[in-house]
């Protein structure tokens, strides 16, 4: 019991004292997840909008695939990215394994389907509502897509935040492709997992607290965005 209390006290001291190791880990976590979500968004927004608006062969398969991929097991994503980037793999020559870039790739693959699927749903719903108006006034395809994205911007932002929430809290994929190398690829989740198993509860707890704060802030933001949109535009 006193161990436990001590661990908590030390954890607080690490946070309040802005322990350099802790700060480095938190910063890297945020950088990696932000980059991953940014890259995922750049792919997912056009992809989701295209699947919502265009009729092409295999479209239904893409929709099913996207929805299924929302629940991809992180360790499997990690394994696949590992195989691709490992020295013997097809992308091995880039030497990316166990680098932050590999972690960004893994997280990007993990959250891209989430953002794309939510984008598709958002744009589909709005399109159903706006379609006759847009056709009636003679809006061209570009204008129509622009209108749908602009008017769906709150829900799209919520989708991006949901992606970030998943990326920052995920452990399996980044552990496999990052390797939890001190000062290089240690992020909050991997450090928590390994330090706990080594019995270093203080650092694990400190990072856990910060992770909870980050995650709840993201959720709170998403809710606030949704409510702001609702109260402003119904």
């Amino acid at each position: 019991m006193t161990d436990f209390v001590n661990a908590f006290r030390t954890a607080f001291e690490l946070i309040v004292g802005l322990d350099p190791e802790l700060v480095r880990i938190v910063t890297l976590s945020l950088q990696i997840s932000l980059a991953a979500v940014l890259a995922a968004t750049v792919i997912a927004l056009p992809l989701g909008a295209a699947v919502a608006l265009l009729r092409f062969p295999g479209r239904r398969a893409v929709v099913i695939l996207l929805n299924a991929a929302m629940g991809l097991p992180p360790v499997v994503v990690g394994l696949v990215v590992y195989l691709l980037l490992s020295r013997a793999g097809p992308l091995g020559s880039f030497g990316l394994l166990f680098t932050p870039t590999a972690m960004i790739v893994a997280q990007c693959i993990l959250v891209m389907p989430i953002i794309a699927a939510l984008t598709r749903q958002t744009i589909t719903d709005l399109h159903e509502e706006y379609d006759e108006y847009l056709r009636s006034v003679g809006a061209g395809p570009l204008r129509s897509i622009g209108t749908l994205i602009r008017d769906g911007r709150f829900r799209l932002l919520t989708a991006v935040l949901a992606g970030f929430g998943r990326a920052i809290a995920e452990v399996g994929a980044v552990l496999i492709v990052g390797g939890n190398i001190q000062n290089v690829t240690r992020v909050m989740t991997t450090t928590i997992a390994l330090e706990t198993s080594k019995g270093n509860l203080a650092l694990a707890l400190g990072l856990g607290l910060i992770l909870i704060i980050v995650a709840t802030t993201i959720n709170g933001l998403a809710m606030a965005v949704g409510e702001a949109a609702e109260s402003r535009h119904g």
Partner: peptide, 9 residues
């Protein structure tokens, strides 16, 4: 239209 289609603006 019977049910107004108004943009979220």
């Amino acid at each position: 239209f019977q049910r107004p289609v108004l943009l979220r603006r």
